[in-house]
């Protein structure tokens, strides 16, 4: 496969004083620096929101100034699991539902690494639901990015824990009758120190949310409302990819003005966006190392 080289801007841009700093920051970020270009174009379907979420993640990593050699991306199985493959960092493709378990071991052994878990709704809530609640409970310093496209996309469109009511999938041909899982509230209840949700259409907001999550010391759970155009959208007549992406703005309400809106979205899983939880619970890795240091000191003293 060919390497595609994007022509760079000819002039250095910092000469233009009239442009504000915000624009300078935008220019600073070149996504090609963070991608494995020999694997491109990626495998995802046309219009898949995972690509937009990947850009936001890489941008947030760039803003946080995280060294690629100190970055570990752990991913599970599914469309979301394949997203990690395209990141030019230390990537770790694990078994179905277990990326958080692998990431816990990795972070405990190598506390110097920035561990980011990319997982999906099925991977994180169904098969790996148990690992999610315990990772949240321990509050280990991991950033968990759950790409929620409300379907099992890679295996052909089976119902997932976040599939809204009445949606048609290959396993619910007459419509889904199962209640929906609210992943952010689950993580919050399980004790995650940082919980947030954002949609893919608001790329800068998503970038800032992930950036805040990366910066947080503790378990940060970020639910990204992605869209599955080819399987979920087509089966349920949700429109083209652009319509599905635009639909996110209609269906979501930023958390900060939740109590101040007249129109609540007429949708089975209308959800809020924004930062829901940011607590100062003790981080598990730090507590663990403190305990070990204490025991070692005691033993040396005796």
């Amino acid at each position: 496969m060919n390497k595609h080289v994007i022509p760079q801007a000819e002039e250095p841009l910092k000469q233009n004083n009239h442009q504000d700093n915000h624009l300078e920051n935008i220019r600073d970020f070149e996504i090609q620096d963070y991608l494995r270009l020999d694997l491109f174009p990626h495998f995802m379907c046309p219009g898949c929101g995972h690509g937009i979420a990947l850009r936001a993640l890489l941008w947030a990593i760039h803003i946080q100034g995280i060294d690629k050699n100190k970055l570990a991306i752990v991913s599970g199985i599914g469309c979301s699991g394949r997203v990690g493959t395209y990141i030019d960092a230390n990537t770790y493709h694990t078994t179905h539902g277990r990326p958080l378990a692998f990431a816990t071991g990795l972070k405990m052994a190598r506390p110097d690494l920035h561990v980011v878990v990319i997982t999906g709704d099925g991977d994180c809530l169904a098969i790996g639901g148990n690992h999610l609640i315990h990772a949240a409970r321990r509050n280990l310093d991991i950033t968990c990015i759950m790409l929620n496209n409300e379907i099992y996309g890679m295996t052909g469109g089976q119902v997932s824990p976040t599939t809204p009511h009445d949606r048609f999938t290959t396993t619910t041909p007459a419509g889904n009758i199962e209640p929906v899982f609210d992943a952010s509230r689950l993580a919050e209840a399980a004790g995650a120190g940082f919980v947030g949700r954002e949609v893919t259409i608001h790329v800068p907001r998503l970038r800032d949310l992930i950036s805040e999550g990366l910066d947080y010391k503790g378990f940060s759970f970020i639910e990204v409302m992605s869209d599955c155009t080819e399987i979920n959208g087509r089966k349920n007549d949700l429109g083209s990819s652009s319509e599905m992406v635009l639909g996110q703005t209609r269906n979501m309400r930023p958390n900060e003005y939740d109590n101040n809106v007249v129109d609540h979205p007429f949708r089975p899983n209308s959800l809020n966006t924004g930062v829901f939880v940011k607590s100062d619970r003790p981080e598990y890795g730090a507590s663990y190392r403190d305990m070990v240091d204490g025991i070692q000191k005691k033993q040396k003293g005796h």
Binding site: I6, P7, E10, L13, G51, I52, R55, V203
Partner: peptide, 14 residues
């Protein structure tokens, strides 16, 4: 920003 395939790149050459 919204291209899921990273196919568009803006070169802000002024």
């Amino acid at each position: 920003w919204l291209c899921p395939d990273f196919a568009i790149s803006l070169n802000p050459a002024l």
